[in-house]
Write a protein that binds this DNA or RNA. Structure first.
Ligand SMILES: [Zn+2]
Ligand SMILES: [Zn+2]
Length: 722
DNA sequence: TCCCGTCTCAGC
DNA sequence: CTGAGACGGGAT
């Protein structure tokens, strides 16, 4: 006998189109959100009960749920988020679910801690090691085995020997909580008048449900202190809080600030955690023992059940959109999750994205500004250096006015930063005998010389070769020249021109995130005078002694024909020049540019960011670009260019007509080949009130299915057109 | 003729 | 995502 309620839909963590139906065996009880193991083909797969069965399936094909885990069910809000992200990005829902079920270890109950205490009996035989253990345990308390080993410096076998001899009593203790709960009242906040006003405005707008706040203020303006108070409000209301940061900004300094405010370290969630830490954290979030999480992008899919606040710090940061499985922008999905959870979202930035700015301007978001720097610091004085008027000398990359300011800062015993958003030594290696250019064999891109490591390297696929002595094409020796600068080359010039300065290079190939953070803290302590860095240095690090920033190629990034080029350039320049100047003295910044009249440069020099946003918003609206219109890119790739192009043309031919929809392409991608695959792009543009994801799904349903090595990737709301 | 790498598809 | 079965090119 089967009643309807014996069968449920289960979303499996596999890239299938929708949930599968399973029988609930006798004696098992599950609800929407229950985490289960189900047989799928020859194996057991993790899945989540999604609700009543969606389709009829022959009873003889139905299988039983193998196991229901002894865990709280995922919140309905999280299940809805999975469906939402899947519909929006066109990624299969099972694939999105995988970003929720990221820690399979977390599903098993945590092993109790093995502990020992004195039994009161003396051991039959005494040794030095045994005596040290007994001494450690002399307080009569139960000690965890690992703690005994740590405190008395013995091996596990000594303890086991004592247990056998009857001197120790073994017991098991419940595992301690992964973090202590943060106390919203651990310390009284110390806010300046403007911060207090901002907090009051945020509190005033709290309707107890969904709402978005854009906290908009200069770097160092005290945004963190303000959103910590919103976190405190959330904790007091008995709800959980999530603070999302770009991974690189998840620093010791930030965690320390949290600890000072809330009396305990926050739960962290990032890519460098061990599986055990990951499992304990995940389980803590689900069971509700973890109340506040500070995490990178992937923490958006943690199994909160009482989420009350999502903070997205540095909301403009491009790292929030990346593909790992599903291709989503963490900002947009954070807002969706907040809406589904009836929670607040707080976006924080010194340079908000044009999308967020427009939502604030139109009243969809509450716009809260912090105009002045904390402790009354000032914005840097920015000048444009016209590279046509005062160019660097031949073979040099630092224009004379910039070099003078570096000297001046060094003379004053302060720090200077030279910024160039290009890793390596030189972007091109050329043979001056035959004209051969070193290209990646698998990408249509130059091999970038990394002289420090003695290699040429492709930044698109990681392909490397040793730096050649002689030209690989004509065999001439001594004929290879490096063309153009990267930061290593700037460092070489700096070493020659500023030999007395202690110089450091900061870029993503300087090691792990942990090593980078170490380097940042050395800089903050003043162990270096001159910093030469890529975009990384612009990410939320405060250097008190830094008073001059020279941007060696402010135009880099404007050249790309993608719709966010101006916005991204404005944000990077604002963030990096914002490193100059702190509490006591106004900093200086110089932008080396060939386009001093470009709206971005003019806005930077005049300090009039409102003019930039106004200009950019008008341009976006006129072009029907985000946020006033929607874009979706289809990237067709294959090992043979004609195959990719032919399929792209077939896709275009199959595209249904729709009112207001425009299609562009197909065209070779700007970087036509990456990792041996030729890429052809199609672009769809629609009005804002158009379901572009739905349209693309319908379109791909009508179009020929890609076969062989053809791939079609969908990128909804692409951030770049590369 | 057999074997193995590559592709294609189903899984409830 | 994974494994099973279907091709197809090349070695034996
Ligand atoms: Zn490459
Ligand atoms: Zn040559």
């Amino acid at each position: 006998m089967h009643s309807q309620s014996d069968i449920v839909a289960v979303m499996v963590g596999v890239a299938v189109e929708g949930p599968y139906s399973y029988r609930v065996p006798q004696g098992m009880s599950v609800t929407r959100g229950s985490i289960v193991a189900v047989p799928l083909g020859p194996r057991l797969t993790l899945g989540v009960v999604w609700g009543p069965p969606a389709d009829m399936i022959a009873h003889n094909r139905l299988k039983d749920i193998a196991r229901a885990y002894d865990l709280p069910a995922l919140s309905a809000e999280l299940c809805e988020l999975v469906d939402w992200v899947s519909r929006y990005t066109l990624a299969p829902p099972g694939l999105v679910l995988r970003s929720v079920l990221r820690s399979s270890e977390a599903l098993e109950p945590e092993r109790p801690v093995v502990a020992y205490r004195l039994s009161g009996h003396a051991p039959s035989r005494m040794t030095d090691a045994r005596a040290r253990v007994l001494e450690t345990l002399a307080d009569g308390m139960a000690w965890a085995k690992a703690a005994i080993i740590g405190a008395s410096g013995v091996s596990a076998s000594v303890i086991e020997g004592l247990e056998k001899s009857g001197a120790l009593e073994r017991l098991s203790l419940p595992a301690p909580p992964v973090v202590d709960p943060p106390d919203p009242d651990a310390t009284a906040p110390r806010l300046g008048a403007e911060q207090a006003a901002a907090l009051a405005a945020i509190r005033n707008a709290d309707a107890g449900g969904f709402g978005v706040v854009l906290l908009d203020g200069v770097t160092g303006g005290g945004k963190t202190e303000v959103f910590f108070e919103v976190v405190a409000d959330t904790l007091r209301a008995g709800r959980q809080a999530l603070i999302l940061l770009p991974e690189i900004a998840l620093t010791h300094t930030f965690l320390e600030r949290f600890t000072r405010r809330f009396g305990t370290r926050p739960a962290e969630w990032h890519s460098e955690m061990t599986p055990l830490q990951r499992a304990r954290m995940w389980r803590g979030v689900l069971e509700g023992t973890v109340r506040a999480v500070v995490g990178a992008r992937s923490s958006l899919f943690l199994p909160f059940r009482e989420l009350g606040l999502v903070v997205l710090d540095e909301e403009h940061d491009g790292a929030y959109k990346q593909s790992d499985g599903a291709n989503y922008h963490a900002r947009d999905m954070a807002i969706v999750r907040a809406r589904l959870a009836g929670a607040r979202a707080l976006l924080s930035s010194a340079t908000p994205s044009v999308e967020s700015r427009n939502n604030a301007d139109t009243g969809r978001y509450l716009h809260v500004r912090l105009e002045n720097r904390f402790a009354s610091a000032q914005l840097p004085d920015i000048t444009a250096i016209d590279m046509r008027e005062t160019p660097p000398e031949k073979g040099s990359w630092i224009a004379p006015p910039v070099a003078r300011e570096v000297f001046a800062a060094l003379d004053r015993g302060e720090q200077a930063l030279l910024f160039l958003n290009r890793r390596g030594y030189a972007p091109l290696t050329l043979c001056k005998a035959c004209g051969h250019q070193y290209q990646c064999p698998d990408c249509s891109a130059w091999m970038v010389e990394h002289r420090f490591r003695g290699v040429l390297m492709c930044h698109h696929c990681g392909h490397e070769q040793r730096r050649p002595e002689a030209c690989g094409a004509c065999g001439a020796s001594e004929s290879l020249v490096a063309v153009g600068p990267g930061i290593e080359r700037v460092a070489e010039e700096a070493a020659a021109r500023f030999p007395e300065a202690r110089t450091v290079i900061v870029s993503s190939d300087m090691g792990s995130n942990a090593q980078l953070r170490q380097r940042f803290s050395e800089i903050a302590k003043g162990e270096y005078d001159l910093i030469i860095g890529t975009q990384l240095v612009s990410k939320g690090h405060h250097f008190e002694k830094l008073t001059f920033v020279g941007v060696l190629d402010a135009d880099l990034g404007l050249a790309h024909g993608d719709p966010r080029a101006a916005e991204k350039t404005f944000q990077v320049l604002t963030q990096v020049t914002g490193r100059a100047g702190r509490a006591t003295r106004a900093g200086k910044a110089m932008l080396q540019t060939y386009h001093p009249n470009h709206p971005v440069m003019e806005a930077m020099v005049s300090g009039d960011r409102e003019a930039f946003y106004a200009h950019e918003i008008v341009a976006r609206e006129a072009g029907g670009l985000p946020p006033f219109g929607r874009l979706a890119a289809l990237i067709v790739s294959a090992t043979e260019q004609p195959v990719a192009m032919a399929h792209a043309k077939a896709l275009l031919a199959a595209a249904p007509l729709a009112d207001g929809l425009r299609l562009f392409g197909p065209a070779d991608a700007p970087i036509a080949m990456v990792r041996g695959r030729h890429r052809v792009r199609l672009l769809a543009q629609s009005p804002r009130n158009f379901d572009l994801s739905g349209y693309v799904r319908f379109w791909l349903g009508l179009a020929p299915r890609p076969s062989g090595n053809l791939r079609v990737q969908v990128d909804i709301d692409p951030m770049s057109f590369f």
